[in-house]
Design a protein around this nucleic acid. Structure first.
Length: 230
DNA sequence: TAGGCCATCTGGTCCT
DNA sequence: AGGACCAGATGGCCTA
C-alpha cells in the first residue's frame, strides 16, 4: 500500500542521482553556444606601437638604435603582449568556469525543485529550504519503505494486526532546526535501516508493535518527516 | 539589527 | 588542457 506519487518520487530521486550528468551535458552544450564573453581587448596598443614605432631615426636627431637595441625592444614588446594575452586567456577561462558553475548550481536547484514537486506539499505552501528538502525526502523514502516492509510483514501473518508505521516515531521528537541529527527510536527490533543522514545511527527502527502510528499517518502526517519544521 | 538562506564568484583539486 | 566538483568568501534579501 504505497501512497500515490511514490513512483514519481523514486523517479525524481533517480533524476537527482543520475540525471545530472545528462542534463549537465545539455547545459554545457548550451553554455558554450550562449556564452557572451564580451572581451574587447585587442592588441591595439601593441599594434599601434608596431605600426608607429618610435623610430629613433625619425626623432630628435638621436643616433639610430643599434640592431641589438631594436631586438631588445622587440622582445620587450613581445613579452608585454604575451602577458596581456595570458591575462585575457585566464580571465576568459575564469568567466567560462563561472558560467559553468552557475549552470551547475541551477541544475542542482532544478533537481531540488523536481524533488520538492514530488514530495507531499505543505498546506501553507511553505517552500522547503534545500536542507529541509533533502531531509524530508530522505525520511519520506525511508517511511515509505517501512510501509512496504510492514505491509509485507502483514501479508505473511495470518492474523491482521493493526497497521502501524514504526518509522513515524521520528514525528514526535524531530530535532530542532539546524540540528544535524534526527531522533530515532532506540532499542528497536526491526531490520530496516535508518535514514543515513542521522549522525547517530539509531540502529533499526522499532518494530511496528512498539509504536502506535497508523499507516495512514504516512500520508497525512508527512509534515513530520521534516526534522526541524513544526 | 542579527541571523538564516541563497546566489555568485573564486581558487583548488581531481578526473578524463 | 579543460571540465566537474567542492568549499570558502561575500553580499543581497527576508524575517523575527
Amino acid at each position: 500500500m504505497l501512497p500515490t506519487g511514490s513512483k514519481s518520487c523514486f523517479a525524481s530521486l533517480k533524476l537527482l542521482l543520475t540525471g545530472f550528468s545528462a542534463m549537465e551535458t545539455v547545459y554545457s552544450d548550451m553554455d558554450t553556444s550562449s556564452c557572451d564573453y564580451s572581451f574587447t581587448h585587442t592588441d591595439d596598443e601593441d599594434s599601434r606601437s608596431s605600426l608607429h614605432p618610435a623610430s629613433p631615426a625619425s626623432s630628435c636627431g638621436k643616433p639610430p638604435a643599434s640592431p641589438a637595441e631594436l631586438q631588445q625592444k622587440k622582445r620587450r614588446r613581445g613579452r608585454a603582449r604575451n602577458e596581456a594575452t595570458v591575462h585575457v586567456v585566464k580571465k576568459n577561462r575564469r568567466l567560462k568556469a563561472n558560467d559553468r558553475e552557475r549552470n551547475r548550481m541551477h541544475n542542482l536547484n532544478d533537481a531540488l525543485d523536481a524533488l520538492r514537486s514530488v514530495l507531499p506539499a505543505f498546506p501553507d505552501d511553505t517552500k522547503l529550504t534545500k536542507i529541509e528538502t533533502l531531509r524530508f525526502a530522505h525520511n519520506y523514502i525511508w517511511a515509505l519503505s517501512e510501509t512496504i516492509r510492514i505491509a509485507d510483514q502483514r501479508q505473511n501473518k495470518s492474523r491482521d494486526p493493526p497497521l502501524l508505521l514504526s518509522g513515524l516515531s521520528c514525528m514526535g521528537d524531530a530535532p530542532s532546526p539546524g540540528s544535524d541529527s534526527c531522533s530515532w527510536p532506540s532499542g528497536a527490533s526491526s531490520s530496516s535501516s535508518s535514514p543515513s543522514y542521522c549522525n547517530s545511527d539509531p540502529g533499526s527502527p522499532a518494530a511496528m508493535d512498539d509504536f502506535g502510528y497508523l499507516q495512514t499517518d504516512v500520508v497525512y502526517s508527512y509534515r513530520n518527516f521534516v526534522p526541524g519544521i513544526y
